[in-house]
Design a protein around this nucleic acid. Structure first.
Lengths: 173, 173
DNA sequence: TCATATTTTCAGTATTGAATGAAAATTCAA
DNA sequence: TTGAATTTTCATTCAATACTGAAAATATGA
């Protein structure tokens, strides 16, 4: 049994480490991604000290990233009876995770872009030089596209899993 | 006329600065995003010195980011007759930009994730403890989802603009 | 070929964002 | 209340990444 447990342990450690490394790529910080990976593959909810111990990180770091993950909705706080400390458990449903991440990324990546583009388009709407007209047209095109992306993100983010799968199947497979 | 040119100039500077700031959010470095913004709104192709001058950046920085943008396919090198220096012009078509960015992001964000998940699933395929089974199932679910995302990215990235718009219209508007 | 223009490299420096850890604040049971 | 357990904050430190600028390499044309 110990060989097999070791195998699992290794695989899990690899997952946590790699998922963390990929976090950076995704605009999510490494620790945050690691904690999420750790809890996604945890059998039981974990408390702050367990997370610190497992990932070898400081209390402050564990605390702030746990907080952030709860704020995103990727973790839930669980109260254990007879326990004073907070325990955390991860959202494990893949579609849920996806919609949450979609919402967050839209907020951070799409919405600000859209408002910049709207502003720049607005500010040059009445100019008449050919350069200004070209600039304005470029802003409008970008605005239209990003606006569309924003709508797509909203729709996808609020779809039920089943519907998404069904729709996707028609389109892409 | 000078008032109006000033307006345009201000709007363009705002666009370049903000697009640059958003680059970070997007996992693209600030200078790279700024150069792209600058050239997307340039009437004529620009050379390295002009970019350096406009953005107040060093030659090395300008050089490496111009190179990177060319590698992505977001800029093209233009040879001007009677000019020894390279000039750069941006891809301005929004759909082209989108497909290029989609391809890059897939390469950096989706493909590595998929291979981690496949490996972790594979490594735990034969284990029998309930924890291992749960872990394996979780990896498989993630793998399935990310694999699907990978397909979607491929399809979208190779669609023609017209088709994408048509399809999107049906789905989302 | 040689001199000059241009591009490329890269060691050193700066900037930014994340992590630490200890102190302060809060919570809770007795 | 009180004091121990727990959470939260935040000034400082650290690490990763981006940027600089000058030197080396390369290309051009006289």
């Amino acid at each position: 049994m110990s060989t097999r447990d070791a195998k699992l342990e290794r695989a899990r450690e690899e997952f946590v480490a790699q998922w963390g490394a990929m976090g950076s790529q995704w605009g999510i910080n490494r620790t945050m991604a690691q904690i999420h990976a750790l809890l996604m593959t945890a059998v039981e909810p974990m408390n702050t000290d367990e997370v610190m111990e497992e990932l070898q990180i400081s209390r402050g770091n564990a605390h702030s990233n746990l907080k952030e993950l709860v704020a995103w909705g990727l973790l839930r706080v669980v109260v254990k009876k007879g326990e004073r400390r907070d325990f955390f458990e991860a959202e494990k449903d893949v579609w849920q995770i996806f919609t949450i991440v979609t919402r967050e990324r839209k907020k951070r990546e799409i919405d600000p872009a859209l408002s910049v583009l709207q502003r720049c388009a607005e500010e040059t709407r009445d100019l008449e030089s050919s350069e200004a007209v070209a600039f304005h047209a470029q802003m409008r095109q970008l605005e239209e596209f990003v606006g569309f992306a924003s709508k797509v993100a909203d729709r996808v983010g609020s779809m039920k899993h089943g519907f998404a799968v069904q729709m996707a199947a028609k389109l892409f497979i």
